[in-house]
Design a protein around this nucleic acid. Structure first.
Length: 430
RNA sequence: UCCCCGGUAGCUCAAUUGGUAGAGCGGGUGGCUGUUAACCACUAGGUUGGGGGUUCGAGUCCCUCCCGGGGAGCCA
């Protein structure tokens, strides 16, 4: 008997086929049972009657949810069935009868669901999010491949830190003492542009921040790009193009999943270049007009970001932050010496920062001074400083947070649903 | 580290000014040939997060500890 997947049903109408999967739901009557089967490609309704099944019918109608089964039957078109196709069952082989499944059909609280994340993944909503995540990542890679970027895998263990030393996870590394789990691949990407011109990486990053908010994970994935001979202006243009590309392609490919999540994609369809651009100075002024006093020189918090991003119907860049609140490697603004040639990109609808980017300091003198101001040990960064000695060029780059971007695309309340196994302040299980 | 909220049946939640701990779902038993979180009947299921205190009496009030959630700081 030919095997097929549920997603292939349209090509097998009227045929006798076999599918393999799990019992996602079950409804039964005296002489007829409806099993909802999930096989990883989709779900279908399988109809079993006592007359056809005979003696095993009594066992089939009581199958515990999530039991694994091999089901054979004829595929028909049926409006009453979810998805429009149905299997009229000839036989059911029980592979493994499940214990009582902890995740029921009614609602559950976040604590319970997170503790059962390994089982929660099977629910339709989580399946939809994981599929959209896969699609998003594919388009991120496709964009870079199409635009002449080379993938450069950056190390997870590092001895330099890109952002802030207090937020590093440290690891004992044989006889070399402490190394740290990477916060960013950027510094290594900078080395690679001298070989490859345009490069990107996509991997996990780790931040030991004691953050308990819906925007934070201790382990998250970031797509980072770095480009030689690229100034701040060009950097923003590429980011607009990149974000528009991945958003438009992802929502086009995943209409069904986004509908299941009840995501209104009208706002997302507007995500096309150019995005809005305001300076940090303007942002402070905008916040003041909205009755939210923020002193110049302070970083923008979650509330501030939400307020600003809700003001615009498309993503907005906030440019030229004060240097003292930004990383040491950002290039000094030529006119505003106290500001950096950088920009954060805020997603609309209150989702906040999804990209941080900047032109990098290529002047060795200014870089060394900046490292001094940030109290960094020059010995650890000798290799990074070297890059300014051997053919230094203007260069820029940015990093996109995969989970925050996915959270925005899916319209989720919390980033924890965007990653298969979230790592949070008080949670590293399962 | 700080602020706020929560912890009651396997799960989601009720329980009046302190007065005999309940419901829905899930489980079990039975019924039903087109169900859509199916439905109907019956049934089992509890050291109310731990410890201490006030009281004739505590799920409820007080103290303390533990666990979780949301937020702040920080950040993608």
């Amino acid at each position: 008997m030919p095997e097929c997947t549920i997603s292939e049903f349209p090509a097998h109408v009227g045929e006798l086929v076999t599918i393999r999967g799990w019992v996602q739901n079950r409804r039964s009557s005296g002489k007829i049972s409806f099993l909802i089967i999930r096989d990883g490609s989709g779900i279908c309704q399988a109809v079993i009657t006592r007359d056809v099944a005979g003696e095993p019918y009594q066992e089939i109608k009581k199958l515990p949810l999530e039991s694994s089964v091999i089901v054979s039957g004829v595929v028909i078109m049926e409006d009453r069935a979810p998805g429009g196709y149905e299997m009229q069952v000839k036989g059911v082989e029980i592979v493994s009868k499940a214990d009582e499944f902890p995740i029921g059909k009614k609602e559950h609280g976040p604590d319970f669901l997170l503790s059962h994340r390994h089982l929660w993944l099977r629910s339709p909503r989580q399946i939809a999010i994981l599929r959209i995540r896969d699609t998003l990542v594919r388009h991120v890679r496709a964009y870079f491949a199409n635009k002449g970027f080379t993938l450069v895998d950056t190390p997870i263990f590092t001895t330099t830190y890109g952002e802030d030393s207090t937020n590093l996870f440290s690891v004992e590394y044989f006889d070399l003492g402490k190394t740290y789990l990477t916060q960013t691949g950027q510094l290594y990407l900078e080395a690679a542009i001298f070989a490859l011109g345009r490069v990107y990486c996509l991997g996990p990053t780790f931040r030991a921040e004691k953050s308990k908010t819906r925007r934070h994970l201790t382990e998250f994935w970031m797509a980072e790009a770095e480009m030689a001979f690229c100034d701040h202006e060009k950097n923003l243009e590429i980011q607009e193009d990149f974000v528009s590309y991945v958003v438009q392609n992802t929502i086009a490919d995943r209409e069904n999943e986004l509908r299941l999540l009840e995501r209104d994609t009208e706002q997302l369809k507007k995500v096309r270049p150019p995005f809005y651009r305001i300076s940090y100075d303007d942002a402070i002024e905008l916040l003041r007009k909205k009755g939210h006093e923020t002193a110049w020189g302070e970083d923008l918090g979650g509330d501030e970001e939400t307020l600003i991003s809700n003001t615009f119907d498309k993503p907005v860049f906030i440019e030229n932050y004060p240097r003292k609140i930004k990383a040491f490697y950002m290039k000094q603004h030529p006119e505003r010496k106290d500001c950096a040639l950088c920009a954060d990109l805020l997603a609309p609808e209150g989702y906040g920062e999804i990209i941080g980017g900047s032109q990098r300091e290529d002047d060795i003198g200014v870089l060394l001074k900046s490292m001094q101001e940030h109290a960094l040990d020059p010995a650890r960064y000798a290799w990074y400083v070297d890059l300014r000695k051997y053919g230094s060029v203007p260069h820029s780059g940015f990093g996109l947070g995969i989970e925050r971007t996915l959270s925005w695309i899916c319209g989720l309340h919390h980033v924890r649903e965007t990653i298969p196994f979230p790592r949070m302040l008080y949670r590293a299980y399962p």
